[in-house]
């Protein structure tokens, strides 16, 4: 059963860089979109609130796979313009998860006690300083645990890229399957699942480190108790 283990691992590893690039790129863009959408939903300007809310509801409401197929297959047909597959992949991953992240940011900012706004206001801080120096650092502590879950969801979503012929690890596993006997097919998928597990543990380790740092900056020794953190991205809403 493990005759070809070395071969399987090395073949799958060829797709690892693509999976990692898609995940890391997706996460980076997700963070940007989440902040923009989250703060947009809290904006005093009604138009900005409307646009942000529409973005969030649209990308949460339509299925991620539909979004992926749309950008990969329908958009080129409409515009005659084909984006580089990996870039398109990162874009879809980020647009979808950024919509969930927007709700995380909004919720976390709103969870900062009203008195903190008033305190900042009483010091005549500008609205930009109020947000950047007082509110966001406190909200950040609340955001990190749900973002950890969101990033793991995003990592898992990179497997969908195999459906649009991006040669990441799931794609390679599927192509190996056809060439191998039954007993070794199981090895292929066991190795594949373990790769995802390791990557998600790395995300969690990184986020825990950030949580500790963010909590330390607020002078807390431990992050606030949280039940939500272990739940799925929907829960963040």
């Amino acid at each position: 059963m493990f005759d070809n283990l070395g071969l399987i691992v090395s073949r799958l590893s060829e797709g690892l860089s693509t999976t990692v690039i898609a995940a890391v790129g997706g996460i980076a863009l997700t963070v940007v979109l989440s902040l923009v959408a989250g703060l947009g939903m809290l904006s005093p300007v009604a138009v900005l609130r409307g646009i942000s809310r529409t973005y969030v509801e649209f990308f949460r409401g339509t299925s991620e796979i539909v979004q992926l197929f749309w950008i990969f297959f329908a958009l080129p047909a409409l515009t005659g313009f084909q984006i580089v597959p990996l870039a398109a992949a990162i874009l879809v991953l980020a647009l979808n998860h950024g919509a969930y992240g927007g709700e995380i940011v909004r919720g976390a900012v709103q969870s900062v006690p009203r008195a903190q706004y008033e305190g900042a206001l009483a010091l005549s801080l500008s609205s930009r300083d109020r947000m950047l120096r007082v509110i966001l650092p406190q909200a950040l502590v609340e955001m990190l645990p749900p973002f950890n879950n969101l990033f793991i969801q995003l990592l898992k979503s990179t497997s969908l890229l195999s459906l649009v012929v991006v040669t990441e690890i799931t794609f390679i596993a599927n192509s190996l399957r056809a060439a191998l006997p039954v007993s070794e097919q199981l090895t292929v998928y066991a190795v594949l699942l373990l790769m995802y597990l390791v990557l998600s543990l790395l995300i969690t380790a990184g986020m825990r480190w950030l949580e500790r740092r963010a909590a330390a900056r607020l002078g807390r020794t431990r992050a606030t108790p949280r039940i939500n953190s272990r739940l799925h991205k929907e829960q963040a809403a």
């Binding site: 969908l160 799931t170 399957r177 039954v182 998928y189 998600s200 543990l201």
Partner: peptide, 22 residues
Amino acid sequence: EFWRSTPLLVQAILIFFVLPGF
């Protein structure tokens, strides 16, 4: 912990394509 850290797509493929071999 393991199962929710890994993709549903891979799990579905495993169940449909690999389990018949067993």
